[in-house]
Design a protein around this nucleic acid. Structure first.
Lengths: 153, 153
DNA sequence: ATAATACTGTTGTAAATGCAACACATTATT
DNA sequence: AATAATGTGTTGCATTTACAACAGTATTAT
Protein backbone atom coordinates (compact mmCIF):
# COMPACT_ATOMS: atom_id res chain seq x y z
CA UNK A 1 0.00 0.00 0.00
CA UNK A 2 2.53 2.61 1.10
CA UNK A 3 5.11 2.06 -1.56
CA UNK A 4 6.27 5.64 -1.99
CA UNK A 5 8.05 5.88 1.31
CA UNK A 6 11.00 7.44 -0.43
CA UNK A 7 11.12 10.51 -2.59
CA UNK A 8 13.73 9.00 -4.87
CA UNK A 9 11.23 6.29 -5.80
CA UNK A 10 8.58 8.72 -6.96
CA UNK A 11 7.68 9.30 -10.58
CA UNK A 12 8.73 12.93 -10.18
CA UNK A 13 12.27 11.99 -9.31
CA UNK A 14 12.46 9.27 -11.95
CA UNK A 15 11.53 11.81 -14.60
CA UNK A 16 14.05 14.33 -13.33
CA UNK A 17 16.83 11.76 -13.37
CA UNK A 18 15.98 10.68 -16.89
CA UNK A 19 15.84 14.29 -18.02
CA UNK A 20 19.40 14.76 -16.81
CA UNK A 21 20.57 12.05 -19.16
CA UNK A 22 18.65 13.70 -21.98
CA UNK A 23 20.28 17.04 -21.22
CA UNK A 24 23.76 15.57 -21.03
CA UNK A 25 23.27 13.62 -24.23
CA UNK A 26 22.08 16.77 -25.97
CA UNK A 27 24.96 18.98 -24.92
CA UNK A 28 27.52 16.26 -25.63
CA UNK A 29 26.12 15.73 -29.11
CA UNK A 30 26.09 19.45 -29.79
CA UNK A 31 29.71 19.92 -28.86
CA UNK A 32 30.81 16.73 -30.60
CA UNK A 33 29.08 17.67 -33.84
CA UNK A 34 30.34 21.26 -33.75
CA UNK A 35 26.88 22.70 -34.21
CA UNK A 36 26.75 26.47 -34.44
CA UNK A 37 23.92 26.90 -31.96
CA UNK A 38 23.29 25.76 -28.41
CA UNK A 39 20.56 23.30 -27.47
CA UNK A 40 18.51 26.14 -26.05
CA UNK A 41 18.88 28.15 -29.22
CA UNK A 42 17.74 25.22 -31.33
CA UNK A 43 14.72 24.68 -29.13
CA UNK A 44 13.91 28.36 -29.40
CA UNK A 45 14.30 28.41 -33.18
CA UNK A 46 12.19 25.30 -33.48
CA UNK A 47 9.44 26.80 -31.35
CA UNK A 48 9.47 30.05 -33.29
CA UNK A 49 9.32 28.15 -36.56
CA UNK A 50 6.24 26.26 -35.42
CA UNK A 51 4.57 29.33 -33.89
CA UNK A 52 5.31 32.36 -35.97
CA UNK A 53 4.60 35.89 -34.78
CA UNK A 54 4.94 35.10 -31.11
CA UNK A 55 5.70 37.78 -28.59
CA UNK A 56 8.50 37.14 -26.11
CA UNK A 57 6.34 36.24 -23.18
CA UNK A 58 4.29 33.71 -25.12
CA UNK A 59 7.51 32.19 -26.37
CA UNK A 60 8.81 32.02 -22.80
CA UNK A 61 5.71 30.07 -21.78
CA UNK A 62 6.34 27.57 -24.55
CA UNK A 63 10.03 26.98 -23.89
CA UNK A 64 9.48 27.12 -20.11
CA UNK A 65 12.04 29.79 -19.43
CA UNK A 66 11.53 33.04 -17.62
CA UNK A 67 11.38 36.35 -19.47
CA UNK A 68 14.96 37.43 -18.82
CA UNK A 69 16.37 34.13 -20.09
CA UNK A 70 14.12 34.23 -23.13
CA UNK A 71 15.16 37.76 -23.97
CA UNK A 72 18.84 36.84 -23.72
CA UNK A 73 18.49 33.83 -25.97
CA UNK A 74 16.64 35.97 -28.49
CA UNK A 75 19.33 38.65 -28.39
CA UNK A 76 21.94 36.01 -29.22
CA UNK A 77 19.81 34.61 -32.05
CA UNK A 78 19.17 38.09 -33.41
CA UNK A 79 22.89 38.85 -33.25
CA UNK A 80 23.50 35.80 -35.40
CA UNK A 81 20.79 36.87 -37.82
CA UNK A 82 18.54 33.88 -37.25
CA UNK A 83 15.53 35.88 -36.05
CA UNK A 84 14.20 39.42 -36.09
CA UNK A 85 12.12 41.22 -33.48
CA UNK A 86 9.64 43.73 -34.81
CA UNK A 87 7.73 46.20 -32.72
CA UNK A 88 4.05 45.41 -32.98
CA UNK A 89 0.94 45.56 -30.85
CA UNK A 90 -1.08 42.94 -29.03
CA UNK A 91 -4.27 44.19 -27.37
CA UNK A 92 -3.02 47.72 -27.98
CA UNK A 93 0.16 46.89 -26.10
CA UNK A 94 3.57 47.29 -27.57
CA UNK A 95 5.23 43.92 -27.98
CA UNK A 96 8.19 42.57 -29.89
CA UNK A 97 6.98 39.96 -32.32
CA UNK A 98 9.52 37.39 -33.31
CA UNK A 99 10.03 35.96 -36.78
CA UNK A 100 12.58 33.49 -38.03
CA UNK A 101 14.75 34.64 -40.92
CA UNK A 102 15.78 32.76 -44.04
CA UNK A 103 19.17 32.13 -42.49
CA UNK A 104 17.43 30.92 -39.34
CA UNK A 105 15.34 28.43 -41.26
CA UNK A 106 18.42 27.11 -42.97
CA UNK A 107 20.39 26.50 -39.80
CA UNK A 108 17.31 24.96 -38.20
CA UNK A 109 16.89 22.55 -41.08
CA UNK A 110 20.55 21.62 -41.22
CA UNK A 111 20.95 21.09 -37.48
CA UNK A 112 17.73 19.09 -37.36
CA UNK A 113 19.02 16.81 -40.09
CA UNK A 114 22.37 16.25 -38.42
CA UNK A 115 20.72 15.51 -35.11
CA UNK A 116 18.13 13.24 -36.61
CA UNK A 117 20.78 10.93 -37.94
CA UNK A 118 22.32 10.53 -34.51
CA UNK A 119 19.16 10.40 -32.47
CA UNK A 120 17.51 7.89 -34.76
CA UNK A 121 20.10 5.31 -33.96
CA UNK A 122 19.73 5.45 -30.25
CA UNK A 123 16.21 4.35 -29.32
CA UNK A 124 16.30 1.51 -31.76
CA UNK A 125 15.68 -0.72 -28.79
CA UNK A 126 12.35 0.99 -28.26
CA UNK A 127 9.57 0.54 -30.76
CA UNK A 128 7.95 3.52 -32.41
CA UNK A 129 4.74 2.70 -30.61
CA UNK A 130 6.45 2.65 -27.26
CA UNK A 131 8.08 6.00 -27.91
CA UNK A 132 4.77 7.51 -28.94
CA UNK A 133 3.15 6.08 -25.86
CA UNK A 134 5.83 7.56 -23.63
CA UNK A 135 5.48 10.95 -25.26
CA UNK A 136 1.75 10.86 -24.70
CA UNK A 137 2.30 9.89 -21.10
CA UNK A 138 4.61 12.87 -20.64
CA UNK A 139 2.06 15.24 -22.13
CA UNK A 140 -0.69 13.80 -20.00
CA UNK A 141 1.36 14.05 -16.82
CA UNK A 142 2.39 17.59 -17.66
CA UNK A 143 -1.24 18.54 -18.13
CA UNK A 144 -1.91 17.31 -14.61
CA UNK A 145 1.08 19.13 -13.15
CA UNK A 146 0.12 22.35 -14.92
CA UNK A 147 -2.79 22.69 -12.55
CA UNK A 148 -0.56 22.38 -9.49
CA UNK A 149 2.44 24.49 -10.40
CA UNK A 150 2.68 28.26 -10.63
CA UNK A 151 4.83 29.08 -13.61
CA UNK A 152 5.24 32.87 -13.08
CA UNK A 153 6.23 33.56 -16.64
CA UNK B 1 7.68 8.01 -41.69
CA UNK B 2 9.71 11.11 -40.84
CA UNK B 3 7.69 12.30 -37.93
CA UNK B 4 10.52 13.68 -35.83
CA UNK B 5 11.27 16.62 -38.05
CA UNK B 6 11.41 18.83 -34.99
CA UNK B 7 13.52 18.50 -31.91
CA UNK B 8 10.77 19.82 -29.70
CA UNK B 9 8.65 16.83 -30.70
CA UNK B 10 11.20 14.26 -29.59
CA UNK B 11 10.86 12.13 -26.51
CA UNK B 12 14.02 13.73 -25.14
CA UNK B 13 12.51 17.18 -25.15
CA UNK B 14 9.16 15.97 -23.84
CA UNK B 15 10.90 14.43 -20.86
CA UNK B 16 12.94 17.56 -20.21
CA UNK B 17 9.85 19.75 -20.29
CA UNK B 18 8.00 17.48 -17.92
CA UNK B 19 10.98 17.38 -15.59
CA UNK B 20 10.87 21.16 -15.35
CA UNK B 21 7.36 20.98 -13.99
CA UNK B 22 8.49 18.36 -11.49
CA UNK B 23 11.35 20.59 -10.37
CA UNK B 24 9.15 23.66 -10.01
CA UNK B 25 6.50 21.72 -8.13
CA UNK B 26 9.15 20.37 -5.77
CA UNK B 27 10.74 23.69 -4.95
CA UNK B 28 7.39 25.40 -4.61
CA UNK B 29 6.17 22.73 -2.21
CA UNK B 30 9.36 22.94 -0.20
CA UNK B 31 9.15 26.66 0.29
CA UNK B 32 5.41 26.60 0.93
CA UNK B 33 5.70 23.89 3.57
CA UNK B 34 8.68 25.54 5.28
CA UNK B 35 10.75 22.40 5.17
CA UNK B 36 14.15 22.69 6.75
CA UNK B 37 16.07 21.11 3.89
CA UNK B 38 16.30 21.74 0.16
CA UNK B 39 15.05 19.27 -2.43
CA UNK B 40 18.63 18.31 -3.22
CA UNK B 41 19.37 17.71 0.43
CA UNK B 42 16.33 15.50 0.79
CA UNK B 43 17.32 13.49 -2.27
CA UNK B 44 20.81 13.12 -0.86
CA UNK B 45 19.57 12.06 2.56
CA UNK B 46 17.19 9.61 0.98
CA UNK B 47 19.93 8.09 -1.14
CA UNK B 48 22.29 7.80 1.81
CA UNK B 49 19.57 6.18 3.87
CA UNK B 50 18.99 3.55 1.20
CA UNK B 51 22.70 2.99 0.52
CA UNK B 52 24.62 3.26 3.74
CA UNK B 53 28.40 3.54 3.87
CA UNK B 54 28.76 5.14 0.45
CA UNK B 55 31.82 7.13 -0.47
CA UNK B 56 31.26 10.56 -1.99
CA UNK B 57 31.92 9.59 -5.57
CA UNK B 58 29.54 6.64 -5.48
CA UNK B 59 26.91 8.91 -3.99
CA UNK B 60 27.54 11.43 -6.77
CA UNK B 61 26.87 8.74 -9.35
CA UNK B 62 23.56 7.94 -7.72
CA UNK B 63 22.28 11.49 -7.38
CA UNK B 64 23.73 12.44 -10.78
CA UNK B 65 25.73 15.40 -9.57
CA UNK B 66 29.41 16.01 -10.04
CA UNK B 67 31.89 15.60 -7.21
CA UNK B 68 32.15 19.28 -6.26
CA UNK B 69 28.38 19.68 -6.00
CA UNK B 70 28.09 16.46 -4.00
CA UNK B 71 30.79 17.58 -1.59
CA UNK B 72 29.07 20.91 -1.03
CA UNK B 73 25.69 19.35 -0.34
CA UNK B 74 27.33 16.97 2.12
CA UNK B 75 29.11 19.82 3.88
CA UNK B 76 25.77 21.54 4.37
CA UNK B 77 24.16 18.35 5.65
CA UNK B 78 27.08 17.69 8.00
CA UNK B 79 26.86 21.25 9.29
CA UNK B 80 23.22 20.59 10.19
CA UNK B 81 24.15 17.33 11.87
CA UNK B 82 22.18 15.09 9.52
CA UNK B 83 25.17 13.06 8.33
CA UNK B 84 28.74 12.27 9.32
CA UNK B 85 31.73 11.62 7.10
CA UNK B 86 34.25 9.17 8.48
CA UNK B 87 37.64 8.54 7.01
CA UNK B 88 37.78 4.98 5.82
CA UNK B 89 39.41 2.96 3.08
CA UNK B 90 38.12 1.46 -0.14
CA UNK B 91 40.61 -0.65 -2.08
CA UNK B 92 43.29 0.70 0.21
CA UNK B 93 42.36 4.22 -0.77
CA UNK B 94 41.34 6.84 1.71
CA UNK B 95 37.71 7.75 1.25
CA UNK B 96 35.11 9.55 3.30
CA UNK B 97 32.27 7.19 4.02
CA UNK B 98 28.96 8.80 4.67
CA UNK B 99 26.43 7.77 7.28
CA UNK B 100 23.13 9.28 8.22
CA UNK B 101 22.71 10.33 11.84
CA UNK B 102 19.76 9.83 14.15
CA UNK B 103 18.79 13.43 13.59
CA UNK B 104 19.12 12.89 9.84
CA UNK B 105 16.79 9.92 9.92
CA UNK B 106 14.26 11.91 11.85
CA UNK B 107 14.18 14.83 9.46
CA UNK B 108 14.06 12.42 6.53
CA UNK B 109 11.08 10.63 7.97
CA UNK B 110 9.24 13.80 8.88
CA UNK B 111 9.81 15.51 5.54
CA UNK B 112 8.86 12.36 3.67
CA UNK B 113 5.60 12.20 5.55
CA UNK B 114 4.73 15.82 4.95
CA UNK B 115 5.50 15.48 1.25
CA UNK B 116 3.64 12.25 0.90
CA UNK B 117 0.43 13.86 2.01
CA UNK B 118 0.71 16.51 -0.66
CA UNK B 119 2.06 14.37 -3.46
CA UNK B 120 -0.52 11.67 -2.94
CA UNK B 121 -3.29 14.04 -3.81
CA UNK B 122 -1.92 15.13 -7.14
CA UNK B 123 -1.71 12.13 -9.47
CA UNK B 124 -5.10 10.89 -8.41
CA UNK B 125 -6.04 11.14 -12.06
CA UNK B 126 -3.42 8.53 -12.90
CA UNK B 127 -3.90 4.97 -11.74
CA UNK B 128 -1.27 3.24 -9.65
CA UNK B 129 -0.61 0.89 -12.54
CA UNK B 130 -0.06 3.74 -14.94
CA UNK B 131 2.37 5.42 -12.58
CA UNK B 132 4.29 2.20 -12.12
CA UNK B 133 4.38 1.70 -15.85
CA UNK B 134 5.71 5.22 -16.40
CA UNK B 135 8.39 4.72 -13.77
CA UNK B 136 9.46 1.51 -15.46
CA UNK B 137 9.55 3.27 -18.79
CA UNK B 138 11.81 5.94 -17.33
CA UNK B 139 14.16 3.35 -15.92
CA UNK B 140 14.24 1.47 -19.17
CA UNK B 141 14.91 4.58 -21.22
CA UNK B 142 17.62 5.67 -18.79
CA UNK B 143 19.29 2.31 -19.16
CA UNK B 144 19.45 2.88 -22.91
CA UNK B 145 20.78 6.41 -22.54
CA UNK B 146 23.41 5.27 -20.07
CA UNK B 147 25.21 3.56 -22.90
CA UNK B 148 25.30 6.74 -24.98
CA UNK B 149 26.18 9.39 -22.44
CA UNK B 150 29.48 10.00 -20.70
CA UNK B 151 28.75 10.92 -17.14
CA UNK B 152 32.26 11.98 -16.02
CA UNK B 153 31.53 11.61 -12.33
C1' DA C 1 63.34 2.85 -8.26
C1' DT C 2 61.28 6.12 -11.08
C1' DA C 3 57.74 7.66 -13.84
C1' DA C 4 53.14 7.29 -15.44
C1' DT C 5 48.43 6.39 -14.61
C1' DA C 6 44.23 6.10 -11.87
C1' DC C 7 41.21 7.26 -7.89
C1' DT C 8 39.06 10.43 -4.34
C1' DG C 9 37.99 14.80 -2.88
C1' DT C 10 38.68 19.89 -2.96
C1' DT C 11 39.11 24.72 -4.79
C1' DG C 12 38.15 28.11 -8.16
C1' DT C 13 35.65 29.95 -12.03
C1' DA C 14 32.68 30.67 -16.00
C1' DA C 15 27.98 29.95 -17.47
C1' DA C 16 23.11 29.12 -16.61
C1' DT C 17 19.09 29.63 -13.83
C1' DG C 18 15.66 31.86 -10.80
C1' DC C 19 13.88 35.83 -8.96
C1' DA C 20 13.06 40.56 -7.51
C1' DA C 21 12.77 45.13 -9.08
C1' DC C 22 12.37 48.50 -12.53
C1' DA C 23 10.59 51.19 -16.78
C1' DC C 24 6.95 51.92 -19.64
C1' DA C 25 2.39 51.59 -21.34
C1' DT C 26 -2.62 50.20 -21.03
C1' DT C 27 -6.71 49.08 -18.60
C1' DA C 28 -9.60 49.08 -14.41
C1' DT C 29 -11.18 51.19 -10.14
C1' DT C 30 -12.63 54.94 -7.19
C1' DA D 1 -9.15 62.69 -12.94
C1' DA D 2 -6.33 60.17 -9.91
C1' DT D 3 -4.93 55.91 -8.33
C1' DA D 4 -4.33 51.08 -8.67
C1' DA D 5 -3.69 46.97 -11.18
C1' DT D 6 -2.14 44.42 -15.26
C1' DG D 7 0.92 43.32 -19.14
C1' DT D 8 5.57 43.32 -21.64
C1' DG D 9 10.33 43.48 -21.59
C1' DT D 10 14.79 44.72 -19.33
C1' DT D 11 18.54 45.02 -15.77
C1' DG D 12 20.89 43.28 -11.86
C1' DC D 13 22.05 39.89 -8.54
C1' DA D 14 22.24 35.65 -5.77
C1' DT D 15 22.23 30.82 -6.31
C1' DT D 16 23.16 26.70 -8.84
C1' DT D 17 25.51 24.07 -12.18
C1' DA D 18 29.29 22.41 -15.11
C1' DC D 19 33.98 21.95 -15.69
C1' DA D 20 38.94 22.33 -15.38
C1' DA D 21 42.75 22.05 -12.38
C1' DC D 22 44.88 20.69 -8.22
C1' DA D 23 46.50 17.86 -3.91
C1' DG D 24 47.19 13.62 -2.04
C1' DT D 25 47.52 8.64 -2.31
C1' DA D 26 47.79 4.04 -4.44
C1' DT D 27 48.60 1.16 -8.36
C1' DT D 28 50.95 0.00 -12.62
C1' DA D 29 54.63 0.25 -16.05
C1' DT D 30 59.31 0.71 -17.45
Amino acid sequence: MVKEQHYINTLYYQIEQTAKYCRYLGSQLFSKLNIGVSVEELVTLDTIFLHDELCQRDLAKLILKDRPATGRILSALEEKGYIVRNADTKNNRLVRKISITQSGEEILKSVTNVLKKYLEKIPHELSEEKIEEMKNNMREFRAILEKEVEMNI
